[in-house]
Computed example of a mutant assay.
Amino acid sequence: MSIQPHLTVDESQVSERVIVCGEPDRVNRIASLLQEAKPVAENREFRLFQGKYRGYPITVCSTGIGAPSMLIALEELVHCGAKSIIRVGSAGALQKGIGLGELIVAEGAIRDDGGSLSYVESSYPACADFSLLRRLENYLSKQERAYHFGIVRSHDSFYRDDEAQICQKWSKKGAIASDMETSALLTVGRLRGIKAASILNNVVLYQQDVKEGIGMYVDADKVMMDGERIAAKAALEALTSIDA
């Protein structure tokens, strides 16, 4: 069995059903929802836990920030046998009326990241797997938490001098949120023949200062932390539904 160079795991340590997230500490919080959860590897930004949910083996893996590290994790997870991957991440709203801690399910993504463009031209769409979308909505529809389906924009920096103008542009075109990893996951996941989806917890109100919004999240505001937990549960339920 071959040890992957960045995740430092082999195929015996990765299940077919995987949750990915950016932040390593979020791996621990998601793993707390599993049975028999145990750490299996940690290297750089990549932390992996293995456990079970409803009897199904589940791997949880952090990817760090941005498309390049997301794609390293994605490729090595696929090399180890991953078949379905859902991102449980955070995002900033691009529409008014999306509150903090409300959930955003990406039907597709605007590919403003450089990582996926290194694989295939921008005309190739970033689309989520329909069966996973259906299962996510099935769970969310039963929760007392607002959620939104739509197009998100994935990008490589929110500290650009013209970031406010870019956000306004895509808001006018109907994008509902922005993050830094979804488009890479959906694009390359599709190229690699796996099922992929992304559910995001809103941590920045539209036109709110980014640093202020992220700071509130780091302070573990209860509403947003509850949003993360519901997003993780939705992902687990989607991954372990029949024929997931």
Rank of each mutant, 00 (worst) to 15 (best):
I214V: 15
G213M: 01
S122D: 12
M216K: 14
I199Y: 04
Q168I: 14
S116W: 09
S171H: 00
M224K: 08
E144G: 13
I166T: 14
F149S: 12
E42R: 10
I194Q: 00
A37L: 03
I214Y: 13
A234R: 01
G97Y: 00
D179N: 01
G213F: 08
E42A: 11
G215Q: 01
V40I: 09
S157G: 06
S241I: 07
E181S: 09
P125M: 02
Q35S: 15
C21A: 14
R44T: 09
V9W: 04
T59W: 02
D209G: 09
D221R: 13
C127E: 06
A93Q: 00
S90V: 10
E237I: 06
I98E: 03
D129R: 09
Q50K: 13
S69G: 15
S171E: 02
L205H: 02
S90Q: 10
Y159G: 04
E36V: 11
Q168R: 07
A67P: 03
S141V: 11
S154D: 01
A235V: 07
I199N: 06
K173Q: 14
S154L: 04
V60L: 12
S123G: 14
E237N: 09
V204M: 07
Q143R: 05
E212D: 11
G189N: 06
S183T: 05
T63A: 14
G108F: 04
L7F: 02
V27A: 12
L34T: 01
R134Y: 09
D226E: 13
A37P: 02
E36M: 07
V188K: 00
K38V: 06
S62R: 03
A67V: 10
L34A: 07
L77T: 05
S62E: 03
V88N: 01
I151T: 14
H155I: 07
S90G: 06
S122F: 12
E237C: 11
D112I: 07
K211N: 12
E11W: 03
H79F: 13
T59P: 08
L71S: 02
T187G: 05
Q50T: 15
T240P: 07
L136F: 15
Q168W: 02
S62A: 03
E16I: 11
A106Y: 00
D161K: 12
V18W: 09
G66W: 00
E107S: 11
P68R: 05
A244H: 00
D162I: 09
Q13L: 10
P57C: 05
T8I: 15
D129L: 08
L186W: 01
V18T: 07
I214S: 06
K173N: 12
K169P: 13
I3L: 15
A196Q: 01
G114F: 00
Y159M: 10
I166Q: 07
